[in-house]
């Protein structure tokens, strides 16, 4: 049993990475306009998009 303890920190670290990524995407405004994002790819636009509104 004790031999497998090293798996615990690994799994926790992976989970933490996921959590941090989610919080980052939330802060980055990626959930602001879910309908718009799916439509926007249909329109070619040279202007780089600014997704962060704040």
């Amino acid at each position: 049993m004790k031999d497998f303890f090293y798996l615990i920190p690994i799994s926790l670290a992976l989970g933490l990475v996921g959590l941090v990524l989610f919080l980052w995407s939330l802060k980055n405004g990626q959930y602001e306009d879910l309908d718009g994002a799916s439509e926007r790819i249909l329109y070619d636009d040279d202007r780089p998009s600014e997704s962060c509104l704040d």
């Binding site: 602001e32 306009d33 879910l34 309908d35 718009g36 439509e39 926007r40 249909l42 329109y43 636009d45």
Partner: peptide, 28 residues
């Protein structure tokens, strides 16, 4: 209500004097 509207509005309003940034949110 569609991507065409987004495109039309963003292009149209960007041309106005003094406008620096237009972004349509389709969800809201």
């Amino acid at each position: 209500h569609c991507g065409g509207c987004i495109n039309k509005i963003e292009r149209g309003l960007t041309k106005l004097d003094g406008v620096q940034y237009v972004r349509v949110n389709l969800s809201s």
